[in-house]
Amino acid sequence: MSAAVPQPYVHNKKRGHFSLGRILLYGFVTLTAIVWLVPLVGALYASLRPFADTVQNGFFSRPDTVTLDNYRRAWDQGDIARKYWNTALILVPALIFTLFFSSMVAFVCSRFSWRFNIFMLSLFTAGNLLPQQIIIQPLFQMYNRVPLPDWMSNSGKLNGSTWGIILIHIAFQSGFCTFVLSNYMKLLPKSLNEAARIDGASVWKQYWQIIMPLTLPALAALATLEFTWIYNDFFWAVVLEQQGADRPITSSLANLGGEFFTDDNLIAAASVFVALPTLVVYFALQRYFISGLTLGSEKG
């Protein structure tokens, strides 16, 4: 976050000075923050004790035993390792191609004059705002009619294959990324292209060797954000991947609920497994994450 924005005039004046307003302010924010922490801390707490212990002594009690047993059982019964792998198989190609495709469109639309510039960018921007459920009926029928060889799909069709999920992620997410990247590229000096062109650089060279390196900050921010969004996808894989075992981890929650339903602490442990990668990425790359979100909301 840009907490580094200098505001020394307030800082110096207020330091050490506690008015009633300041106390109320800190009180309100702190109280809200504590309430906000409850669900996650509660999940961690519950996941570390046996369910029988919670049932017997209630949620608000000191645990008799602290154990990782819930995690071990959730890992085995939920087949978490395989679900992580399924996620990786979708996430990595989807992320790379989303950024690749959208950066190309953003480059051509923002760096060259073209009659359809605004139309193209509007198309992508609007496409990214549609609720996914609007397109699911026809998409499902289309996917059902595209045959794939056995080595690509267990079902023999695009429907039920990892490929189908990767494709829809690229198509859908490239809306947002094109929007953000075109806003960003538009701000780079126009003279870059001319200079390159006079030097005889091809369009591809201008894109790959001149504009892309300058766009790296935006790409890093988008990569962090898209990692989280694609990882967090529940809908596409629930609908387009009917085989529970082949689902990525977030969508496999749809099955886990039934298997674990009697043991809340086991569910809590499974939730922690699902949440962990996004939490790690967020805390490690917080700056990129936030700037990705705000890049999309500022006017270009």
Partner: peptide, 23 residues
């Protein structure tokens, strides 16, 4: 404070549902 309030945003609503249901 910002990190505390923002943390739930990086979770899928499906996980949010699971956490609230169990905890």
């Amino acid at each position: 404070y910002q990190a505390v309030f923002f943390t739930p945003v990086v979770l899928s609503l499906a996980v949010v549902g699971f956490i609230w249901k169990s905890v």
